[in-house]
């Protein structure tokens, strides 16, 4: 309940209720099991990338290379033959290793070299995109069906994507109770004070990048399992979505304020909006425009609500 009292999350919860109500009204059998499973499978990568951005933002940094990172991991998965790594699990392990490596590079550049994360990760995004393009110049390549089967399967009746999201949230919850989670927030809200209190700011930020990129790796696996092919631009939209979800979820881009639940709500709002636009029968040429308008109004709404809350 303490999370709810945080001023930032109430307006975003309101938005969540509105978009779910709209979606339920427009999409036939929205609450039916097949459609729910389908929606969750599509939403999972978005949720994971938004959670990743949230942990990095909470530590007081930012990562504009998550989208390009998703693409690079996707392209690697579509290039490596599954026999070379011993089955789908080997392939996934490889994806997570690459994700951790990319996160470590970003983390080191931002912490040890001390470059501003906004522009440094903008630069690494270009590098990731270039590498992805080198692996898969044209969308194509092929992933083994076994990866897709794993993702669309169920574990004792529960769909795998739901398991992944639940797992990610569990990690988050544990993080909140564990020292590292509190340290991330402390470093994000006031690095100097955290340093005075004996916290290694560098190490905590680096850890935030690694945790975040582990989630990015999971997201890339989920996307690849759905498309079963490689595309150097598949992750492009995730960068904007993740930053917007973080803001809509009431997490301050200045760091140290907000909760992962906010990012979850923001991710679902943005994910379901595409659903609503699709099922409302809006002609395809209007979809981009409406999505932009919704993101903009959601941002404006959040900011005004926060200002009002700050005054009250």
């Amino acid at each position: 309940m303490r999370a709810l009292r945080y001023t930032g999350i109430l307006p975003s919860l309101l938005m969540l209720v509105v978009v779910i109500a709209l979606n339920a009204r427009l999409q036939p059998h929205f609450f039916g099991l097949p459609s729910l499973e389908d929606n969750i499978a599509t939403l999972t990568p978005t949720i994971l990338v938004c959670l990743a951005q949230a942990v990095i933002v909470l530590s007081g940094e930012l990562d504009l290379s998550v989208g390009a990172g998703v693409s690079l991991i996707n392209c690697l998965l579509a290039t490596v033959p599954i026999s070379a790594v011993g089955g789908p699990w080997g392939l996934m392990g490889l994806a997570l290793l690459l994700a951790l490596a990319l996160g470590a590079i970003n983390g080191v550049i931002v912490t040890i070299f001390g470059l501003p994360s906004l522009i440094a990760t903008f630069a690494t995004a270009a590098v990731w995109f270039g590498l992805a393009l080198a692996l898969i110049p044209q969308p194509g390549g092929e992933l083994d069906q076994s990866v897709g089967d794993l993702y669309s399967g169920t574990v004792s009746g529960v769909p795998v994507p739901l398991f992944i999201v639940a797992g990610a949230l569990l990690i988050w919850t544990l993080l909140g109770r564990h020292r590292l989670g509190r340290r991330i927030v402390a470093v994000g809200s006031n690095p100097a004070a955290a340093f005075q209190a004996g916290i290694s700011v560098l190490r905590v930020k680096l850890a935030a990048y690694l945790v975040g990129w582990l989630l990015v790796g999971l997201a890339a696996i989920a996307i690849s399992a759905q498309t079963l092919s490689g595309d150097a631009r598949v992750g492009d939209t995730y960068t904007l979505t993740s930053v917007a979800a973080v803001v809509i979820g009431g997490i301050s881009l200045a760091g140290g304020r907000g909760t992962p639940w906010g990012a979850l709500v923001g991710a679902i709002v943005l994910g379901i909006v595409s659903n609503v636009i699709y099922f409302a029968g809006i002609p395809s040429i209007w979809q981009e425009f409406f999505k932009g308008i919704v993101i903009m109004s959601a941002l404006g709404f959040m900011v005004l609500e926060q200002k009002r809350a700050a005054v009250a």
Partner: peptide
């Protein structure tokens, strides 16, 4: 958006560019 409402420049300009791009498609 940036100076009066206080939305971070990164988010404001990205959101506006998706509105403009979408509007141009229409």
């Amino acid at each position: 958006g940036i100076a009066v409402l206080g939305v971070p420049p990164l988010v404001t300009t990205l959101a506006l560019s998706s509105v403009i791009d979408g509007g141009l498609i229409v």
